[in-house]
């Protein structure tokens, strides 16, 4: 896929869309800007190592339920969330670990939640698909496909009602787009000009169903936003800087009161839908092709090649992250299960 950003006609006409977000890569404008490249890498690497540790502990039976890994999609969540302020909200889907970590959720408590322990973010009552940290504006992993979209619209409605310039970013996958609530929410958000950024992580598969098998009209969703008058852009989801720049443009427009925006990032999960997935529905060639563009490998390599960082700096981050993840697993393992009376807490306020 080309790394350039395509936009629908409405976006293209907008004066603010003069610069093409997807061309960011490591071009001069980005190199000279104040992007914290090392921090972006640290977050992507943290997510990668966290997910690998999750997979291992799932195999050991220490994490149960459904486990959906974010491996391969790190650049989308990290690039997008890096543009936000503290008073913005983040809403995610069931593949939510990456967004949670990019939003700065405590690594130990996140891992503990996956282990179902009392020290977890939801005291062990949410699990992998339901990570929350309201204090950080992280309003959940949500596990009914597309069910989180109106929640995000409502959070944005409150931001608008309170006359702030804060916004809500809502992540969802390509599988969401065939739910009726997806279309309902797009319309509602557009009619009310809500400060919400719809961020589609198009990883080409809804569980085992490739887009082509379940959607009429091809693999691109962003042109459909013209129906709702929502400016939409496509971005290379394997390029963290491109994602960051595309999101910055959308975020600025929302803060300026222009209403909802839509970004479609083309991305790919390198592993199965969940740990229970044998991936009989797709060939390994396709997976390998995408893996060659692995942002966790290509991004630091480019940074070093350009002389923006040294390999020592990258190695240092790797060591730090590996220690942090090992510690998180240890923390989770040593944390107690919730007491049984916890069953009855938090049902009603």
């Amino acid at each position: 896929m080309a790394s350039s950003t395509k936009s629908n006609s409405k976006t293209a006409k907008s004066s603010k869309n003069g610069k093409k977000s997807g061309t960011a890569g490591l071009d001069e404008s980005v190199v000279t800007s104040k992007v914290d490249h090392l921090e972006l890498f640290r977050q992507m690497f943290l997510i990668r190592q966290f997910e690998i540790a999750c997979g291992e502990n799932y195999s050991k039976g220490l994490i149960r339920g459904f486990l959906h890994l974010y491996i391969g999609q790190e650049a989308t969540g990290v690039g997008a969330i890096s543009t936000l302020r503290e008073d913005d909200y983040v809403v995610s889907h069931y593949r939510d670990h990456g967004h949670a970590l990019a939003r700065g959720l405590d690594v130990n408590r996140s891992m503990a939640e996956l282990f179902g322990r009392a020290t977890g973010t939801s005291k062990g009552k949410g699990g992998s698909m339901h990570l929350f940290d309201a204090a950080k504006g992280f309003m959940g992993g949500h596990a009914i496909v597309a069910g989180q979209l109106p929640l995000a619209a409502g959070l944005a409605l409150a931001q608008q009602y309170n006359k702030t310039d804060a916004l809500t970013i809502c992540f969802f996958g390509d599988g969401s787009t065939n739910q009726g609530i997806y279309h309902e929410t797009m319309n509602l958000a557009a009619v009310w000009k809500l400060p919400v950024l719809f961020f589609l992580e198009n990883n080409m598969y809804g569980m085992g169903s490739s887009i082509e098998r379940v959607r009429a009209g091809g693999i691109d969703f962003y042109p459909g936003m013209a129906t709702y008058g929502i400016p939409a852009a496509e971005v290379d989801g394997m390029d963290v800087l491109a994602v960051k720049e595309a999101t910055e443009i959308a975020v600025e427009r929302i803060r300026d009161g222009e209403g909802p925006q839509f970004i479609e990032a083309k991305t790919f999960r390198f592993s199965g839908h969940s740990l229970a997935d044998g991936q009989k529905y797709r060939g390994q060639d396709e997976v390998k092709e995408w893996e060659e563009r692995d942002p966790v490998a290509t991004f630091p390599a480019q940074l070093i090649k350009r002389g923006l960082v040294t390999s020592d700096q990258i190695d240092e981050i790797k060591t730090e992250v590996n220690e942090a993840v090992a510690k998180a697993v240890e923390f989770a393992e040593q944390s107690p299960d919730p007491d049984l009376p916890e069953i009855y807490n938090d049902v009603l306020a």
Binding site: Y89, L151, L157, A158, Y161
Partner: peptide, 28 residues
């Protein structure tokens, strides 16, 4: 109109938006 909001015929979306607004501290 900011406090008395006519909605589209989209029960899922406007009920869901109520949940989000409530989660953010309003009382829809």
């Amino acid at each position: 109109p900011e406090r008395i909001k006519d909605t589209p015929i989209s029960e899922q979306a406007f009920l869901g938006a109520g949940i989000g607004a409530a989660a953010a501290g309003l009382r829809p």
